[in-house]
């Protein structure tokens, strides 16, 4: 591992190293930030479908709450995306 680090350090300038690290971090930020909301939205919609199947008369209320829940969960992905564009392009 140390040999690889030395090899990379020998081949690249500090600016290039910094750019590479920023690109990798940006990719991780976007990817990880999309996974969590994906799981959250899946769980949220699954439970909402279950609720609508059990109690059809409350479907309107459940859908309203579900829509807001999706939007709030999606905010996490948007934050990750914004971190990504700021790290990568700004």
């Amino acid at each position: 591992m140390e040999a690889i680090a030395q090899l990379i350090a020998a081949e690249m300038t500090p600016a290039e190293l910094k750019n590479n690290a920023a690109a990798a971090s940006a990719g991780y930020a976007y990817g990880l930030a999309a996974i969590g909301p994906g799981i959250g939205i899946g769980y949220l919609v699954g439970k909402s479908v279950e609720a609508m199947a059990r109690q059809p008369e409350a479907a309107g209320m459940v859908r309203t709450t579900m829509f807001l829940g999706i939007a709030f969960t999606e905010a996490l992905a948007l934050i990750g995306f914004v971190v990504f564009i700021l790290l990568k392009f700004a």
Binding site: E57, A59, G60, M61
Partner: peptide
């Protein structure tokens, strides 16, 4: 403006 329930069928 804010319907709280609707029929599921």
């Amino acid at each position: 403006e804010y319907p709280s329930s609707s029929a599921a069928e």
